[in-house]
Design a protein around this nucleic acid. Structure first.
Length: 405
RNA sequence: GUGGUCGUAGCUCAACGGCAGAGCAUCAGCUUGUGGAGCUGAAAGUUGCGGGUUCAAAUCCCGUCGACCACCCCA
């Protein structure tokens, strides 16, 4: 007797069963299609890199890396984000990359955080960035893309809330991280934190009031103008208190929120003009965003935005018994040759009832029945499970008669 | 990383120191060419895992793994 191995997975890691995996595929498909509609091209980078590739840029918070020594004694880390590896790529292959470089990247990243709902140790990131353009048009273009993705996912009114870190340039970083929490803890919470960080009551209040009364600078005006040019006037807002506390943001910052899902942003973006310079003397500015994939899925669940498709399989061909197996195979092959995803029931010994239940459970819309009668007439019975209707058609009319579009 | 709540059948939960149970789902039959209903029956558990206390532990204690919540953090 073998000792059984406990079926289990690590904290913060997940399995995706067909229902969830198909939902995720749907969202990935929409995101990828939108990236490509805007002329972004894909890249992929390794799961493991030299640790210093990441630490050189982050410094203080090393404890969130999945890091270890490989068999050769090298200090390595699992991919922690996609922006830093892309900056490395740009510095490493200057002769192969033409600027401006519009790239997207959809890969998993790993962080050794304490997991909570919507927060995992292994998760998917979808990034799009434009490298090599200083002009605000590049910010405008990626922000427009941010908005369009959520429109294509059928969110009713995605809003990009936008600010510019330049407007914070005289404010200490520790104050920015406090103001970043305004939405979450309210004005009193922010003032309290500023207080704890050594600001007097008066200074804290002045600071917050000053920021609240900030006005868009020229770069922001240019971005807004760009978005207006796309007719997106309804889909952005200036928000002087938006902070996004990333230490490397150097200009415009934005987040996507959707009105009916008030629990935070689904996407975050920023300009980062000095990240490539960590790897190269070239000056390559960058601007772009990362999609919070799991949050986006959560929001779509909550708002019921998923289309009802549960499987890509369009047809189940049933098998009456061993004597008609060949006929069923022939039908399945015919449909597949017309690029119709077709499931041939895998067991000829099961009753028709079983096979129908299988199709219902799997969500396959059409069932083809081909028993001895149909075989004799070279026909097939097409059953629509949703309408509970069926019709018999000639085999030679088949792909067309299914009425699939 | 700090603090907290929780873990019982596939799922939702009950039992809260004294025989581990229900509903739903599953499987079989009623029904040998057609559905999610109904009826009958069956299967299903080392109570997350390991240790301790006790005559007796799902129940109390310790550890561990996992889920969730608040911090922290969030390229």
């Amino acid at each position: 007797m073998n000792k059984l191995i406990t079926p289990q997975i690590l904290k913060g890691f997940r399995d995706f069963l067909p229902e969830d995996a198909q939902k995720r595929q749907y969202v990935i498909d929409v995101i990828r299609r939108t990236f490509e509609l805007y002329g972004f091209v894909p890249i992929e980078t390794p799961a493991i890199e030299y640790l210093e590739t990441f630490t050189g840029n982050i410094g203080e918070d090393e404890h969130l890396f999945y890091k270890f020594k490989d068999q050769g004694g090298r200090d390595v880390a699992l991919r922690y984000d996609q922006t830093v590896p892309t900056c490395r790529v740009i510095a490493q292959y200057p002769s192969k990359i033409t600027l401006p470089f519009k790239r997207y990247q959809i890969q998993t990243v790993w962080r050794a955080e304490k997991p909570q709902k919507g927060r995992y140790r292994e998760f998917l990131q979808c990034d799009a960035d434009i490298f090599g353009v200083e002009d605000a048009s590049a910010d405008g273009e990626t922000i427009a893309l941010s908005i369009d993705i959520y429109k294509n996912l059928r969110f009713k009114k995605p809003i990009a809330i936008i600010n510019d870190r330049e407007l914070y340039k005289d404010i200490p970083y520790k104050a920015i991280t406090a103001i970043d929490k305004l939405e979450k803890v309210g004005a009193s919470g922010v003032l309290q934190e500023l207080n704890q960080k050594g600001f007097s009551n008066k200074d804290a209040k002045t600071l917050l009031d000053t920021i609240k009364n900030n006005k868009p600078n020229d770069r922001l005006k240019k971005i807004f103008d760009y978005l207006d040019g796309y007719g997106l006037t309804e889909n952005y807002q200036y928000k002087p208190t938006l902070a996004r506390s990333f230490s490397y943001s150097t200009g415009p910052i934005w987040e996507i929120v959707v009105g009916d899902f008030p629990t935070g942003s689904l996407l975050g973006g920023e300009r980062f003009d000095s990240l490539v310079s960590r790897f190269s003397n070239m000056k390559v500015p960058g601007t772009g965003f990362a999609i919070g994939f799991d949050r986006t899925i959560l929001a779509m669940e909550e708002l019921g935005l998923f289309p009802p498709i549960s499987t890509k399989t369009k047809v189940l061909v049933t098998i009456f018994d061993e004597t008609t197996l060949r006929y069923s195979q022939k039908i399945a092959q015919l449909l597949r040759s017309h690029a119709i995803p077709t499931d041939l029931f895998p067991d000829p010994n099961q009753k028709l009832e079983k096979q129908l239940k299988y199709a219902l459970k799997k969500g396959v819309p059409l069932v083809l029945i081909a028993g001895p009668d149909e075989l004799r007439k070279q026909s097939v019975t097409v059953k629509n499970l949703a309408t509970r209707t069926q019709k018999t058609v000639q085999l030679k009319e088949l792909p067309h008669a299914l009425n699939l579009t």
